[in-house]
Amino acid sequence: MKHNTRNVYLIPYVLWIVLFVVAPILLILYYSFFDIEGQWTIANYKKFFTPIYLKMTFSSFWYAFLITVFSLLIAYPTAYLLTKTKHKQLWLLLIILPTWVNLLLKVYAFLGIFGTYGLANAVLEALGVGTKQILFTDFSFVFVSVYIFIPFMVLPIFNALEELNPSLVDAARDLGASAWTTFRRVVFPLTIDGVKAGCQAVFIPALSLFMITRLIAGNRVITLGTAIEEHFLVTQDWGMGATIAVFLIIAMAIVVIITGNRK
């Protein structure tokens, strides 16, 4: 009797899992074995291992790596300094607030800022560097992506720093460690879980960004995400798209396993 009522909760939830978690993954796998005519084939996989696709995969990983590293380098000090401020919850809210503004709008804003006559070039002009082509370069792609992802990196690191027992920092100082040594040997190792969570929250989406590449990088940067979108919505070659998706899922699983060994 007791058991039955509790299982009632399981039914809709398990139904959701089967329908929207398990089935889609299996379908992706299934479709990856069909070519554009609907014939069963493993040609898609052969095609994936040709230089064009491998190069694209590699560059996609490289960009995602760059975006993650820059986000981390900027976000860690930010999170650290935030924990030192007086009204830290309020400041944190202000860091998160931009994530509530539609992503597309922020990307769109950079169309203006990075434009030939935009703010960025005006600043460069004032500094005497002169006008540069910023839009439709890899730099603009990485910059905008980092901009988008910083709050997602700050949040878990901030939480990890907040959980850190402050007497551990005192203890390190007490034992003669300088501020830098304390950071390197105590603070950073103990907030590594937050860093991992942040990297996970940045790296995986960075692999699959396609709207930013389309709008800001002007097709100069092709990521796995762009390729999937292209195959599904433009060329209608679902099989090839699904194949790339399979590899993206594998990459995702690897990243989760690497960053996910949290207690």
Partner: peptide, 27 residues
């Protein structure tokens, strides 16, 4: 197991979710 399956959609890139749902709805 339930927790892992729960988190799949959270860590999945949007394109994967989008593409797989597209297949699902079409089927």
């Amino acid at each position: 197991l339930l927790l892992t399956l729960n988190n799949v959609l959270i860590v999945s890139p949007d394109v994967i979710i989008g593409a797989s749902f597209l297949i699902l709805f079409t089927i």
